[in-house]
Design a protein around this nucleic acid. Sequence first.
RNA 1: GCCCUCGUAGUUCAACGGAUAGGACAUCUCCCUCCGAAGGAGAAGAUUGAGGUUCAAUUCCUCACGAGGGCACCA
Length: 569
Amino acid sequence: MTNDITSIIAECIAEAVGEPVDARLTVPEVPEFGHYATNIAMRLAAARGKKPLALAGELAAAIAKNAPAGFFGKVEAAPPGFINFWLSKKTLQNELARVARDRKFGAGNIGAGKKVIVEYSSPNIAKTLNVGHLRNTIIGDALANIFEILGYRVIRWNYLGDWGTQFGKLIVAYRRWGDQAAIGEDPIEELQKLYVRFHEEAKTDPELERQAQEEFRKLEAGDAENRKLWEQFRSRSVEELKGAYAALGVPDFDVWVGESFFEGELKKIARELLERGIAERSEGALIVRLDEFNLPPALIEKSDGASLYLTRDIANLAYRLKKYKPAKILYVIGNEQTLQFEQLFAVAKKLGMDSAELKHVKYGLVLGESGKKLSTRAGRTVSLKDAILKARTLARQIVGEKARDLSDAEKDEVAEAVGIGALKYNDLRENRMTDIVFDWDKMLDFTGDSAPYLQYTYARLKSVLRKAERSAARRSFAGLDSEDELALMRKIFGFPNAVARAGELYATSILAAYLYNLAVAANKFYETTPILKDESASRRASRLALAAIAARTLADGLALLGIKTPERI
RNA sequence: GCCCUCGUAGUUCAACGGAUAGGACAUCUCCCUCCGAAGGAGAAGAUUGAGGUUCAAUUCCUCACGAGGGCACCA
């Protein structure tokens, strides 16, 4: 997916400079029509013993000479030493016609069919999903989509938290206070209540923690009764999770392999680490020292022989490398687990497991309205179910007021697309590593930089296209030359770069910001430029074509973010 | 104590080391007898502090201050 215009510009620059240059680094866009700029002269001025502005002038002349005839409208140097390029109108019109004809942008293939495993969502079973999982799940889904379109073979992996001491806790709590009837009705809700109660009571009764560790040890040792309980907890949870993903409109995962899957491998790993002298005994536990990485020791096995999260992650990594031979593994997991992954990657290096690029795609926490961490243990969460319900209800109310000529069933459908879209976009537009404070008002704001704004823009364009006579939109953009038309055309060209950059930086926000700016340009075009009402038939056709390609780009981009675009809202 | 994030207008988020720091929400003005006002046009408002590197620092380095998270038997 390369943008041909930027490649051509890069070639012209390289020829003028006399050495290869990186197109992305030297051709940042400038927010004016058809205008690109480079700072190459300032970078080279010192090395060539020239003043930046003088060098820029020389290079500008050379670049203009190197370019295909009629490609640039103007090339000139500007203080303190930038070189500015304006594409000719002809160039823009021809390029857009090509895109419209091919129905896609340049057929680049950054991924080249390489495999990438994207691990995301990864909830703990026996716990309800909360708004923290929302952030994780939709970022993972969007990144998976982006890598797919960049030409990678993507494996979507839900690494369930279905093993560990928490199940010891749950078993203890279930035996003490469990209510079979309540569990039959709403299993996950009930299990979560038990979990919360366990932590409350454990504050005054330390014996509980000890018992929980013992029960988990028994589970790991194959105790039949504990095993049966665990299986029950697990299957109920998976059922409920699938429902939640469907409600969110997130496609199913390719792999649902969780921590318990590696149960059988753990002893082997521990033995191998010990035999190779990588791990050692310390205070009865098995650890790997990571002094050379400037990290605290990693705990592989507890003193009672039970496994830990990290142990299972090592097993998982080994399994993935062997079975899938991926080029990359993305771990989409919160900031707070940074140390864990630094340790995992360090141990992997010691073990020589380096055939794939490992990347912890981290992001800030979702904090409660108090500014503190949302905690399941303390019973302080906002459930995903509530968030979805609230978003949908509000959206339905607004759609009821605004959407004309839609049946009730259509309104329901639109409300879902708008409500869930708003929820998703609210997270995806932000790339900050900063923790975000959960805020209903912000999440349910349907104006401004929001999914409904983008969806509205799309629906508006489609409305015009519906009203036009069939096939009136030809693929010629010859008549388009107003500032707003050209600004929109230029914005549309930004799509491939936005997608490529979003993938490169693992940042959905880059794509979201691009789409917002595209919508702004589309709305301005719509506002200032008559489409159906223009008296010239050929200009009508060109403007319809522009509206069509803008709408399609918007829809394609939103689809990558997992957001639907109803034809009418 | 050590480590990871982060500090930009009233709020919330942008800005490959580049040109006049850009949006959204809230506030204040305008625009529905022109294809959908979930829209458009305009006003006002910000880089925590001190050093350093650089032709150029919101961005990189050091220190201080402030916020959140993590640091051996949780995940």
